[in-house]
Nucleic acid binder design. Structure first.
Lengths: 206, 206
DNA sequence: GTTTGTGAAACGATTCACAGCT
DNA sequence: AGCTGTGAATCGTTTCACAAAC
């Protein structure tokens, strides 16, 4: 089961969302074609993606919605909640902390950090912004599972190093720099300017 | 020159950022290896990526930093500024409007829209939040090039339809839904929950 | 001697197509 | 008859390796 492409995982997330919609509509069974249609892919792709993890469907019938939802939650590790540390109480950090989608999908912000004395001590969405100096202490006490790095680019790497030293194995990085970590740590970088630049390229080359 | 992989374009953006750093340090020439090192890729990849667009280097020497910066800006369409409409003055919209990285890299927010009467008329970063009803009128008057959709999921598709009807060809979508548009329109979706879910998967399967 | 530019090889992901189950 | 599960074929991307340029 090791070594599944990231693109496959992203599609599984997408299928899960669609299945939850189907579930809400009381639909009991769904075919690979139906899942593909609204997910922007093909039925063969859906079947291949699922087949990496088992055979969940019935030939001639399709996939039982409820069961498949449960399986996908298990595969994606979404049958539990995660405690997230937000590093950086700037614009992006602020937006993310308040973003309901995170909590809805099982991710709870357990602590917020910043360097700015003007921000430290302020209450934010029920949490107090803490001094980044207390990172080690608080991350341990709060049993943090993941970190979101929303800092200026120059401190992203040193912060990541401290997180890695603390044993954090998953980092979502919004700083516009590449972060280097050991092999057993996963970093996903979301670079907003980069996304706009791919659009700029597409606009230019038509 | 048509049909270059998106992964290539994303790396070009990355190279551009690194080259700008080198430029700031007064470094005149850089090898593919040096570009690769800090960009998380290989020298062969760098050379291949660049070779899609021309040959910019000197054998035995490397690439002239200033020239390559200019070339990459041209390739990515970053030798001009873009006028961006922000749809949705919620948390994410607010963070993005204030995000300096956008303006720094040539993207100016030209208008902000919302449906909420409590928000309409408020000044934000020098711009007044406008009624979404005025979308058509304002987008034309402001000569908008691109749109950022930061709305609740249920209105993302109808908004995208109106943008497409207005002739907008590039949309950056932060709503957690798949948006369907004609072939000549580019949509990039950034789904924050999805990114966390790929981390959850990685954490679970080790 | 160093480093580019690029065909060729290797690798990885998607699509095809069909046997097998319901 | 309908739809899954999956090997085989196809397509696309990355890596290799080396001749050519400096």
């Amino acid at each position: 089961m090791r070594k599944v492409a990231e693109s496959t995982i992203r599609r599984l997330s997408l299928y899960l969302r669609l299945l939850e919609e189907f579930e809400g509509q009381g639909i009991a069974t769904v075919s690979s074609g139906a899942l593909a249609g609204r997910g922007g892919t093909t039925s063969a792709q859906v079947r291949k993606d699922l087949s990496f993890f088992g055979s969940f469907g019935k030939r001639g019938l399709g996939y039982p919605v409820l069961e498949l939802v449960a399986h996908l939650r298990g595969i994606l590790g979404l049958d539990r909640r995660y405690r997230v540390a937000m590093i950086g109480a700037g614009k992006i950090g602020s937006a993310l902390v308040q973003y309901r989608g995170f909590r809805q999908r099982g991710f709870d912000v357990a602590a917020i950090f910043d360097v700015d004395p003007a921000k430290i001590g302020k209450a934010w969405n029920g949490l107090t912004v803490q001094d980044i100096a207390a990172l080690e202490e608080v991350v341990k006490a709060e049993k943090v599972d993941m970190a979101v790095v929303a800092t200026p680019p120059d401190v992203a790497q040193p912060i990541a190093d401290r997180l890695v030293a603390l044993g954090i194995k998953a980092i979502l990085n919004f700083a516009p720099v590449q972060i280097t970590v050991p092999d057993d740590v996963v970093v996903k970088t979301v670079n907003l300017a980069l996304e706009l630049e791919t659009l700029s390229y597409a606009l230019t080359n038509r």
